[in-house]
């Protein structure tokens, strides 16, 4: 318990309050279940639980030692890798519909392998091409699931 708990509890408090306020825009329903009842109940419970977590976090932050600072440099390298992975995945999901599965996938797999510290170029190229082919056969031919294709027009 510590600073992270405080931040996350504040995040959940904001979410629950926002949801609760938004439910006032819903139409009133006299018979049966109004669409606002369930979200209001759930957001109220989330708010109370987040408050409990906030209190736990405030009491826990005093006990937090400074030993964690040593780890910070390592975490930053990972954070950069993860951000790169998210950006890579985001672009993959965008270009997949434009250039098609067969063109978009090998660079994505190659990029992911680099992020997983793979340095052998021959292996990266081979795996990215073979895996793309295997996935294509599995989806398109075995299970007959359509995959995005390159369309000029």
């Amino acid at each position: 318990m510590g600073k992270k708990e405080i931040l996350l509890s504040i995040f959940f408090i904001i979410i629950s309050m926002t949801i609760y306020v938004l439910t006032y825009q819903f139409p009133k329903q006299t018979v049966a279940l109004s669409p606002k009842v369930f979200p209001q109940f759930v957001s109220a419970c989330l708010f109370i639980l987040s408050l409990v977590l906030l209190i736990q976090g405030i009491t826990g932050v005093k006990k937090e030692s400074e030993q964690k600072k040593v780890k910070l440099a390592l975490n930053n390298i990972f954070l950069l890798k993860m951000l790169t992975m998210i950006i890579l995945a985001f672009f993959y999901t965008r270009i997949l519909m434009i250039v098609g599965f067969v063109v978009a996938t090998p660079p994505f797999i190659a990029g992911s392998m680099l992020l997983f510290n793979e340095k052998k170029w021959f292996l990266i190229v081979t795996v990215s091409i073979v895996a793309t082919a295997v996935l294509y056969i599995l989806f398109r031919i075995v299970f007959k699931i359509p995959l995005p294709r390159f369309n000029l027009f």
């Binding site: 993959y92 997949l96 994505f108």
Partner: peptide
């Protein structure tokens, strides 16, 4: 380094394949 990039690709294809939707892939991410 081989296993997880391939699984990640499979994840996005799986998310896409149900509705042929880029939105579904974004939700998965």
């Amino acid at each position: 380094a081989i296993l997880f990039p391939v699984i990640l690709t499979l994840c996005f294809l799986g998310a896409f394949s149900l509705n042929n939707s880029v939105y579904d892939m974004s939700v998965a991410l």
